[in-house]
Lab assay of single mutants.
Amino acid sequence: QWIQSKREDIVNQMTEACLNQSLDALLSRDLIMKEDYELVSTKPTRTSKVRQLLDTTDIQGEEFAKVIVQKLKDNKQMGLQ
C-alpha cells in the first residue's frame, strides 16, 4: 500500500491543516469512528497525530486510505515520491 511505503515522508510532511481536512472528510463519510477521531485529535503533537491516523488506516482499509491520499493531493503534498 502506497501510504505504508511513504509513511515516514507523510509523518514528516503532512500539515496540521491537511490532517484536519482528512479527519473531517473521514468523519463526514462515516469512515472513522468517533473514538478513533478522538484518539488522533487528542495526541499532543502533529507527528503523533499523523502516526495515529496512519495506524488507523492500516485497520480501516482502502476507502479510508483513498480519502487521505486525496487530501494530500488537494494540499499539494504529493511530493512524497
Results as ranks from 00 to 15, higher is better:
51 R>M: 08
73 K>V: 11
39 L>V: 11
12 N>Y: 07
55 D>A: 14
19 L>Y: 04
45 T>M: 12
8 E>V: 09
71 K>I: 12
32 I>P: 06
11 V>I: 15
40 V>P: 02
56 T>W: 15
17 A>I: 04
58 D>G: 15
21 Q>M: 02
66 K>T: 11
59 I>L: 15
15 T>G: 04
69 V>E: 11
73 K>Q: 14
42 T>K: 10
40 V>Q: 00
24 D>Q: 05
27 L>G: 04
23 L>G: 03
73 K>Y: 13
9 D>S: 09
74 D>A: 13
2 W>R: 07
23 L>Q: 07
53 L>F: 01
5 S>A: 12
58 D>N: 12
58 D>R: 11
49 K>Q: 01
19 L>W: 00
60 Q>I: 09
25 A>V: 12
28 S>M: 10
65 A>L: 00
55 D>L: 12
65 A>W: 04
29 R>C: 07
28 S>R: 12
10 I>A: 00
19 L>E: 06
27 L>C: 03
7 R>P: 00
64 F>H: 06
12 N>W: 01
67 V>T: 09
63 E>I: 05
75 N>I: 07
42 T>I: 10
32 I>D: 00
11 V>N: 04
44 P>E: 12
8 E>C: 00
27 L>V: 13
54 L>T: 00
60 Q>M: 11
20 N>V: 09
50 V>C: 10
48 S>K: 10
23 L>E: 06
20 N>D: 08
16 E>K: 05
61 G>E: 12
31 L>K: 04
59 I>C: 13
43 K>E: 08
56 T>L: 15
44 P>Q: 11
42 T>V: 07
42 T>F: 10
53 L>A: 07
61 G>T: 12
72 L>Y: 02
20 N>P: 01
56 T>F: 14
23 L>R: 02
12 N>F: 03
33 M>E: 14
70 Q>W: 03
42 T>N: 12
53 L>H: 03
48 S>L: 13
10 I>E: 02
5 S>K: 11
69 V>R: 09
15 T>V: 02
16 E>G: 01
35 E>T: 12
21 Q>F: 02
16 E>H: 03
10 I>K: 03
11 V>L: 08
62 E>R: 01
16 E>S: 09
49 K>R: 09
75 N>K: 05
13 Q>S: 14
65 A>Q: 02
57 T>A: 14
42 T>C: 12
72 L>A: 01
66 K>I: 02
71 K>F: 10
12 N>M: 14
73 K>C: 14
13 Q>C: 03
10 I>H: 01
19 L>I: 14
34 K>V: 10
31 L>S: 04
33 M>Y: 06
57 T>Q: 14
62 E>V: 01
46 R>H: 13
29 R>S: 09
51 R>I: 10
50 V>K: 00
63 E>V: 04
45 T>S: 13
55 D>H: 03
5 S>Y: 02
68 I>L: 07
34 K>P: 14
80 L>S: 11
31 L>T: 02
34 K>D: 06
18 C>M: 09
54 L>C: 06
2 W>A: 05
11 V>A: 06
61 G>Q: 10
56 T>H: 10
9 D>Y: 12
76 K>A: 14
75 N>F: 07
20 N>F: 14
46 R>W: 01
17 A>W: 06
36 D>W: 00
8 E>K: 08
31 L>M: 10
65 A>V: 00
24 D>V: 07
71 K>R: 04
